[in-house]
């Protein structure tokens, strides 16, 4: 697992009070018992950690840990305007 994925997992684990070992890229937000407030918090922590801004319309489509990691990859590889 690369650095981006591991950092995302660590952020989610910390926010949820879970062991990072219990989270995979395939883990769904439902299976991690992530509710809408968790989602806001996790999105913020991810934005802070990677210095990115997740677009509003992307937030709704995040369903798994892998979705978060993919999103971070996209946002960190694109040159910012």
């Amino acid at each position: 697992m690369d650095d981006i994925a591991q950092r995302c997992i660590d952020i989610i684990a910390k926010s949820k009070g879970l062991d990072p070992q219990s989270i995979s890229l395939e883990s769904s937000f439902d299976s991690l018992a992530i509710d809408s407030l968790d989602k806001i918090n996790i999105s913020f922590e991810v934005e802070e950690a990677f210095n990115i801004e997740i677009p509003d319309d992307a937030l709704g489509s995040l369903k798994t840990v892998g979705d978060v990691v993919d999103g971070v990859r996209r946002l960190t590889s694109e040159p910012t305007a």
């Binding site: 062991d19 070992q21 018992a33």
Partner: peptide, 10 residues
């Protein structure tokens, strides 16, 4: 709709 409890382990 599914719901999973909060304690999760490997």
């Amino acid at each position: 709709g599914t719901a999973y409890p909060q304690y999760r382990y490997s």
